[in-house]
Design a binder for these strands. Structure first.
Length: 447
DNA sequence: TAGTGCGGGGAAC
DNA sequence: GTTCCCCGCACTA
């Protein structure tokens, strides 16, 4: 019986590959595969039991990046870097901003900084902050492993995060810088008002102050040729992507990394499908604390929802493809052009006139946009280009306005009653999160 | 100041 | 022996 279960698990492991390739390795293996056919595109939000093989040239992989708050954990093995998830910081009052957002802050990685962080008060209600630890790996934090074996970087994740996504590192940094500005700038200045507005959004909203930085990072991504995921199975989405790439090149963006990132997200979707097919987790014979059955059920929940949101099943998705490339071009052009309008852009206050003429809508909260997009409502930018529902790949880690919006929506959507996460609600949120990852496109570059 | 990586050490299994 | 965590240190941005 046990043996049979192990066999199943081994089969699962064999199938658990984001790119769909058959892989059978464990990060602890003495020898890792050298005949890697397909290099994975970088995943900033790896969840569940994921194995990835990145190129050694992948800068993100080199830096062992993750948008989860991961801290280094000593495994007494210098060849394998192990990181464990810190969870997420929430307001103990379970407060919401006036527009309904929840506070999901990024735990500081440094122990001292984290302790200091928990002594601080909620930026929204001044209540105390509470760290929700990650217990997604048999009661222990989800762990990520990194191992450099030229010419690849092997990544393995164990466990499924049982908490909301925190702010990304960039979001947290932006929030801190805004808070600093908040304390440094007289309260009567427009800047102060904006800071307060942003703070009211729990800091999740990207500071437009960070726009130059963001653009810079985009350019870095472009130069790094990070995303090598090939468009293996071309869909209409991907054709649109190609078109967008051409268009955005025409706007001086060179390659559009955010679109390429969407391609990698689609690769991730394949992985999730694999998770579902095989019954989830990979198998580590060395780790008796494993099998996290709930991980699979969670993934399955996510996946079933994601299925419903798949392009082919969203009648509005294809419908809006046509305006997409036009929208993209205008959007990105505007994004650069609006950099000087940063002091006015982020506000939900309707009395503030729009500065941006196309693309990003300065008056509408990102969360609202995301909600509407999830409902399949087309969005009009100022060029009257429909933003297709299928173009809302909202990846919180991604430096894009809508991506950020999705993140906030996720944060809105996860209700917490008392100190407990309610499973049903959480599933909905996870699903929304998956909407984030699997269904929509990354579009709006913010940085 | 915070993020990151490394390593010592102890506890639990 | 393995895995977990805490802690401190050094380096970096």
């Amino acid at each position: 019986m046990l043996r049979a279960a192990e066999d199943v698990n081994m089969q699962q492991e064999d199938l658990a590959s984001p790119n769909g390739d058959m892989i059978s390795w464990d990060i602890n293996d003495i020898k890792l595969p050298k005949d890697v056919k397909q290099i994975d595109s970088f995943q900033e939000w790896p969840d569940c039991y994921v194995k990835c093989i990145y190129s050694s040239d992948d800068k993100n992989a080199q830096r062992h990046l993750s948008s989860w708050a991961m801290r280094n954990t000593n495994n007494h093995n210098s060849r394998i870097l192990k990181k464990s998830c810190l969870g997420v910081v929430v307001c103990s009052n379970n407060c919401s901003t006036p527009d309904g957002r929840k506070m999901y802050l990024r735990p500081a990685i440094c122990d001292k900084a984290r302790q200091k962080q928990q002594r601080k008060s909620c930026p929204n209600c001044n209540g105390s902050l509470k760290l929700i630890p990650c217990r997604g790996h048999g009661g222990y934090p989800v762990t990520n492993f990194w191992r450099h074996e030229e010419p690849f970087i092997f990544f393995q994740s164990k466990g499924a995060h049982d908490h909301p996504r925190p702010e990304t590192k960039l979001e947290a940094e932006a929030r801190r810088s805004i808070q600093k500005a908040h304390t440094a700038v007289p309260p009567t200045s427009p800047r102060f008002k904006r800071s307060r507005d942003i703070e009211s959004l729990t800091g999740e909203m990207q500071s437009q102050d960070t726009l130059p930085l963001i653009i810079s990072e985009q350019e870095e991504l472009l130069s790094q040729d990070n995303f090598r995921g090939s468009f293996r199975d071309k869909t209409s989405e991907e054709h649109v992507l190609d078109n967008c790439l051409s268009l955005t090149e025409g706007y001086g963006f060179g390659k559009a990394s955010y679109l390429i990132q969407h391609a990698q997200v689609m690769g991730y979707d394949k992985h999730m499908n694999k998770c579902k097919q095989v019954g989830m987790r990979d198998y580590d014979s060395r780790d008796p604390t494993e099998p996290v059955a709930s991980a699979y059920s969670e993934c399955r929940e996510q996946q079933s929802w994601a299925k419903n949101m798949e392009l082919g099943k969203n009648p509005l998705a294809d419908k809006h493809h046509n305006g997409a490339t036009t929208f993209l071009a205008g959007l990105h052009c505007e994004t650069l052009g609006s950099l000087n309008a940063v002091d006015f852009g982020i506000s939900n206050a309707p009395e503030i006139p729009p500065i941006v003429k196309v693309g990003y809508h300065p008056l509408r909260s990102n969360a609202t946009m995301f909600e509407e997009m999830c409902e399949g409502k087309p969005h009009l930018n100022y060029n009257n280009c429909n933003i297709p529902a299928s173009f809302c790949q909202l990846s919180p880690e991604d430096p894009y306005l809508i991506a950020d919006a999705a993140h906030h929506y996720y944060q809105n959507a996860l209700p917490m009653k008392g100190n407990e996460w309610h499973i049903e609600d959480e599933r909905k949120c996870v699903n929304l999160d998956h909407c984030n990852n699997e269904t929509f496109f990354n579009l709006f570059p913010l940085r």
